[in-house]
Structures are given as C-alpha cells and as structure tokens.
C-alpha cells in the first residue's frame, strides 16, 4: 500500500490582517481620546439625566471639592491674563509679570488660594505649583467672600458683560452650605444662570421625561 504523504504545512501565520486590525483600533482610540485636563483637585460629580454638552468657549468654571475648597478656572487665555493682572493691581498682591504668566498657566488646572497667598504660590516653580495643596478660595465668610471679588473683577475685565457660560463643578460629598455660598457669590454679582457639570444617567422608565423622550418630542429643557 502506498503511503499517503501529508504535506507539511508551514506554522507561520500571516500577521498582516491582525496588524491591520490593531492599527485600525489604534487610530480610532487616538482620534476618540480627549485627555483628561489637569485638575487642582479630584472631584466626583453627581449624575443627572441632562444631555446637554459642556460648552468650552468663554467658560468660567468654579470647582468645589469634598472638603469645601473652591477653585477657579477660566478658559479664555487673554481674559484670564487680564483678570489676573487686574487682581494684582486691585488687591496689591505685588506680582511680577513672569509670576502672572506662571499663575496664568496654573489657572488652567485651577487656582484656589486666598489673595494674600497668590504671591507665595506664584513664587514657586511652575512644576511645584501643581503639587501645592491649595486651601481654596474663601467663600464661607460673608464678610470675606473672595470668590465674590473674583467675579466682580471678572465682570470688570469683561467690561461688565457676563461670561457666556458659568459652570459649577461639585463633588458628590460637598456639603450644601459650600454650594450655596458659591451660588451667593455669583448672584450677588448679578449672575443667575449656571450650568452644573454632571455625569450622564439614564432616565428612569415610566416617568414623565422618559415618555417625552421616547415619544420623540424634543427635550424642552
């Protein structure tokens, strides 16, 4: 009987297709990625059913964390610099130009120190500023509500016009008085419209909003 010869197959697998998939996924994630911005403090926001997107233009952001510390961020580079310059002049902080530039950079992550500590914060190296445990802008004291002054200066820099988007970002565990003090600082300056930053959540079924959204009507909120 003749032996059946089994042809020896190569164990070499063609990796090309695999490679294609890998790089396709890579390209997708690279494009879909938005890096988490630097933050001066860790904040876990509450959830809401709201589906509005976060505005990024002309946005003044106030962050308050679990411990009640308050930080400010402003995304408009020009106005931010003008704001810091004005605070420097009005509150006699005594910052030099390079120090203002340093704070301007630090404000991307958030500034949370009383006016009298701005100088010592700015005198540090740029890399060290991020590591400083900032005590937060004072808001609790009604007599010394520095956030109110920040907003007043902001309005002055903007020529009296309100920033388009005032956003508040708070931690789940922040106690209510901190929140209401922050709100007060704005309402005292005539700003009444806010956007609270929250994480998305599903609408519970069987409720008014659920019916409205599923029936295809536009969310009027």
């Amino acid at each position: 009987m003749p032996k059946v010869k089994i042809p020896r197959k190569s164990t070499h697998v063609d990796m090309t297709a695999f490679c294609d998939v890998a790089f396709l996924l890579l390209a997708f994630f690279m494009l879909a990625t938005q890096f988490k911005p630097d933050e001066a403090t860790k904040v876990e926001t509450p959830k809401s059913v709201s589906s509005d997107t976060i505005p990024t233009k002309d946005a003044f952001l106030v962050t308050f964390d679990k411990g009640g510390r308050v930080f400010v961020t402003y995304d408009d580079a020009e106005k931010k610099k003008a704001l810091l310059g004005k605070i420097n002049a009005d509150k006699a902080v005594g910052l030099t130009d390079p120090e203002i530039a340093k704070l301007n950079k630090a404000m991307e992550a958030g500034i949370g120190v009383p006016f009298n500590m701005l100088k010592s914060l700015a005198s540090k190296d740029a890399a060290d500023i991020a590591k400083v445990n900032q005590p937060g802008i004072p808001v609790t004291d009604t007599l010394n509500n520095e956030l109110k002054l920040w907003i007043a200066e902001l309005l002055a820099v903007n020529g009296g016009s309100k920033p388009k988007n005032v956003m508040l970002k708070g931690d789940n565990g922040t106690n209510y008085p901190t929140f209401i003090n922050v709100l007060d600082a704005f309402t005292k300056n005539g700003i009444y419209n806010f956007k609270l930053i929250t994480m998305p959540e599903n609408v519970p079924s069987g409720t008014y909003l659920y019916d409205e959204r599923t029936s295809g009507k536009k969310d009027k909120k």
Binding site: F29, Q34, S50, Y192, N193, F194, L196, T198, P200
Partner: peptide
C-alpha cells in the same frame, strides 16, 4: 481616554 463625557445641567437662580 474619557469615554463618557460629562453633561451640563442648567440651573437658574
């Protein structure tokens, strides 16, 4: 990556 981007909730005082 941060997949679920935060949303804004309006509040008028």
């Amino acid at each position: 990556t941060t997949m679920s981007s935060p949303t804004a909730m309006k509040l008028n005082m």
